[in-house]
């Protein structure tokens, strides 16, 4: 029963994508955009500033920053 439903859902999406006309270009835009965002921008331009620190180090870093910035 569940297997049948999964196959039904799979066919629904498969046929939907196959029958697309004007939607193809939109999917191309979506995929290119997501690639640029996650594999170029996020990886090379937007690393987490606190990356590489464990929780205690992050607490210490932000604590020191927020105290020192008062002066």
């Amino acid at each position: 029963m569940i297997r049948k439903q999964i196959i039904g859902i799979y066919r629904f999406y498969r046929d939907g994508f196959r029958e697309m006309t004007w939607g193809r270009i939109l999917w191309a835009i979506i995929l290119i955009k997501l690639f640029v965002m996650f594999f170029i921008l996020k990886l090379f331009f937007f690393p987490s500033f606190l990356k590489g620190m464990n929780t205690e180090e992050k607490q210490e870093y932000v604590g020191t920053e927020l105290i020192n910035r008062m002066y």
Binding site: L34, M37, L41, F46, S48, F49, L50, V62
Partner: peptide, 19 residues
């Protein structure tokens, strides 16, 4: 997904805020 870019910026440009 254009809004996700705003979330990227929190971690990079606004790390004190994010924490």
């Amino acid at each position: 997904a254009t809004g996700l870019i705003l979330e990227f910026q929190f971690g990079t440009n606004w790390s004190n805020y994010s924490w």
